[in-house]
Structure formats: C-alpha cells, structure tokens
Amino acid sequence: MTTPHDRIDGRPDRRASGAEPEPGVRPAPEPPRRLPEFDFAAYRSTELRSPRQPLVIPPSGATEPTGPVFGVADVHPLDADLTAQHVGEPLGERIVVGGRVLDESGRPLRGQLVELWQANAAGRYPHKADRHPAPLDPNFTGAGRCLTDEEGRYRFVTIKPGAYPWGNHHNAWRPAHIHFSLFGTAFTQRLVTQMYFPGDPLFAYDPIFNSVRDERARRRMIAGFDMDTTVSEWALGYRWDIVLGGASATPTEDR
C-alpha cells in the first residue's frame, strides 16, 4: 500500500525540509491538502515548473470565495455535442459522457460552466504543436462547453479519444483521456483535470495519472461505463462525477 505522502521517485521532498521562516513572519498554518503535489519527477516537465516555496494561506478576502458567473448567453446548446460542429460526422466511436458536478458536501453545483477538450479518435489534437503522425479529422475539433442543470448534471456527446505518444520518456503513451475545466461557485474551487476511461492498460505507465499517489484519489479520475448513460442503438455512455473542493465558507447566492 502506498500513501499520498510516499515519494516513489527517490527524490527528497524539498517541501518537508523547507527553510526556516524569516524572523518577524508569523508561522504558517498547514495549508489544505490538494492533490497531486506540484513536483513529480517521473513527469519530467514538473522539474522546472513546480514551486519550491511553501504556499501561503491568504487572509480571507472578498474575491477568492466568489467566482465568475456564466449564463445561457455564454454557451450554445450545440457546444455540448462535439460530433455536430462540422458538416460531416467525425470518425471513431461515438460516446456520451455525463455526470454531476458536486461540492465536497455532495451538493449539486447548478448552472456551472464545464469545458472539455480532447484528442480525436486517432489520438491527434488539431494543434500546431502536436506532431503525432496520426490523421486529423476534418469533422472533429474536440472542444465543448455546457452548463450544469438544476441537479448539477452535465452531458456531452463526443467520440472516444485515442491514446497518443508523448516525449516524456522512451515509449511514453498517454492513456485515453478528456481534459475538463470547471469553475464551481468560487475562485477557490477552480479545477482543471482529466477524465480517464475504465480498464486502460496504460494507467500503470503514465506519470501524469500516477502523479496522484493515493489510489482512491486516482480512481476518482476514471469514468465508469454506465448503461443508464448509454443510448440504445446509438452510443456507449460513461459516467463521471466531479467533486470540487475549496468552497467558500460564506455561501454565495443560490442560483
């Protein structure tokens, strides 16, 4: 068994042996634990892109417990159907991805913006920097948005993304995933993450997935195949619930 605090990468935990605070500076309380840590050696790009100084718990301000509001003018209903953005239908396996956005008490987050983006069925993004020699699909861009409903539910129609190689190490492949961006009701709840598909053989080899050291927490990133989301004669369904932390202590207006 591993714990969320284990370091499997053999690198000392610099945060644990941090410098003494300067005189005159109040000792910092323990910050809330967020997963994963910034620094995970197996994901090499974290080396120069991870803070080394301890995070500072800010005094409660008026700004961070609140967040932007998005409305029907911001999101078109068709934005949630990634298979309907072009003249033709994209290639690949059509899927439905849905679930609920909840706060840490399990309450639905209503009317919240959900953004998503992903590779196409061949594992290619329509991005200049993506040099993977797999075909682009003129009928698939791979970006969508929606607002959660009164129960906190979201639903996208898309195609199953392909796995793709990346330069992190020899024979490195990302498991199939969909990028998600969420806001919640507070700046503190903002989350960018990735959803994975059940049973992917690449899980054990992927440093990004494994940067979350706690097994239970890793499981929270994997959608479940779901017959209730599956549409007969049309598309398999995956269900993925998202829980946002860091809700404000001060309740915002109920929208």
């Binding site: 967020r34 997963l35 994963p36 994901y43 679930g99 909840l102 840490e104 399990g106 990028h179 989350l191 960018v192 993450t193 990735q194 990004i208 997935f209 940067s211 979350v212 239970r216 927490a217 890793r218 499981r219 929270r220 990133m221 994997i222 959608a223 479940g224 779901d226 269900r239 993925w240 619930d241 998202i242 829980v243 946002l244 932390g245």
Partner: peptide
C-alpha cells in the same frame, strides 16, 4: 465513478 465522493484531483 468516484466511489468515495472525495475531491477530484487536479491534472495538468
């Protein structure tokens, strides 16, 4: 999905 109801971790 998310059997324990805990916070969804961040990813890059």
């Amino acid at each position: 999905p998310n059997p324990d109801g805990g916070l969804t971790p961040s990813q890059t």
